[in-house]
Design a binder for these strands. Structure first.
Lengths: 244, 244
DNA sequence: GGTCAGTAATGGTCTAGACCAATTGGGAGA
DNA sequence: TCTCCCAATTGGTCTAGACCATTACTGACC
């Protein structure tokens, strides 16, 4: 395997991908020692700093760790992928191997309620799109999702059919927003009468309530969403890392 | 502000701390442009690559973002800190400004049950420490915590008094483990009779169940813990980032 | 055999350059 | 006045070195 210069993908990312593939294929065993940085540099014909850029990224991702004087070693594999890592419902269900569909209950442009405006850091009564959907996994209702997006960040959003399309896909690909962070809270409570009906439950039913504020690269919010998941069918999953 | 050479803390970390302090003090406003990398290098008397090491870390943390040809800019501040970022109960409550205490229900060395051994990636029936505590915030019961740790990774663990001491403090400072990752799941269900009594609740009471496997730098698990939080008093908080 | 000093290798840090693509601003020309 | 092109600036990438502390290995000496 050699790297290609004059290629749109930088060398260190090519190297990172190459090493990541080797690691994830199990070619190196757990706690196996990688070739030294100087050997890798020589072998791939790049400078040692470029090798380090690749290794730093892999260490950041938790795949390897280094010890001065000893070498760089493979970490033990993660139990699980980051199922809920900044993905929307559609992507998450796809990763879980389930078919995601939607029933749109509301798709409208409204004036932002006070608490929504606060969460989205916009002026009260600014225009926001309100999107209410029942989310189904394999045809069964799993959650009621209530989302708000500032209208000026995604004009003509409602032209899309969100019974079929993924909201995050549209934000990323149609509007070019880079979603880089989300502040999320999760709590447990009993289902309200509305939720009982929409989710086809009988009382007393535990509900997992998720609130999420999604931020773009520039640091301002682009979406506030509050979802009510069936407690008996859904488990929220996160990979925690040390505080920044 | 100048940086100190011949100092145990590397230059790029000193610079990162300096810039982070400036940003978090609000000295630069939102979307304000930072001095260019070349200007920073000149001003602090270091090379541009060292400046970039500091800026990369800040970008990784979401405090700044760069645009080729334009400059490096301050992101909008995060709404919230990463309350639950790989912290134990004691640290988390401290961040929330509450007093954390414990009532130890069990502290024993046992043979690992099968599912625990699987989660901890150890041999079935290997020795593990079992630690069951009722966790109180400001004197009121908030959660029942059921933890397991492989005995060979922390011998004599039970010599500590976990009614007072923080488990994570002991793991970090007494045993020198670096906790770098945790796989966590959160779900909602109704309280069991035991939980109703320990948490002083009346049925039907929603419970937030958290399961966590904490990993050290080498990638193997050091702790499995299953906690039952009162649904009416606790909200789980996480900062999501893009998948690695 | 066992101990200890010297040496080689390693990851971590740092330098002083370089080229590139994207962006910006100013000036020449219409 | 307006348009278009060129030059300067910027962050992103890359190089070929350097020194350091930690670690492991190798012999020499007791």
């Amino acid at each position: 395997m050699t790297l290609r210069r004059q290629h749109p993908i930088p060398l260190y990312q090519q190297l990172e991908a190459t090493l990541r593939a080797r690691i994830e294929s199990g070619q190196y065993g757990t706690h196996h020692r990688l070739p030294s940085e100087r050997e890798l540099a020589l072998h791939f014909g790049v400078s040692r700093m470029t090798v380090r850029q690749a290794l730093d990224a892999l260490a950041q991702a938790g795949l390897i760790y280094g010890k001065v004087g000893k070498g760089t070693f493979i970490s033990e594999p993660k139990i699980d992928q980051q199922l809920a890592a900044l993905t929307g419902f559609s992507e998450e269900m796809h990763k879980r191997g389930q078919a995601a569909t939607s029933r749109v209950l509301k798709a409208a442009s409204v004036s932002a309620p006070k608490e929504i405006a606060t969460a989205l850091q916009i002026d009260p009564k600014a225009r926001v799109f309100s999107l209410v959907r029942v989310r189904l996994a394999n045809g069964e209702p799993l959650a009621v999702e209530n989302g708000f997006l500032p209208a000026h960040l995604c004009p003509d959003l409602l032209a899309h059919d969100f019974a079929r399309e993924s909201l995050y896909d549209v934000l990323r690909n149609q509007y070019g927003w880079r979603l880089v962070r989300a502040q999320q809270t999760v709590e447990a409570r009993l289902a309200t009468p509305d939720e009982l009906k929409l989710l086809e439950l009988k009382p007393p039913a535990p509900i997992l309530v998720m609130e999420r504020v999604t931020m773009v690269e520039q640091g301002f919010p682009i979406e506030y969403v509050r979802s009510a998941y069936r407690g008996d069918r859904y488990k929220f999953n996160a990979l925690l890392t040390p505080a920044a």
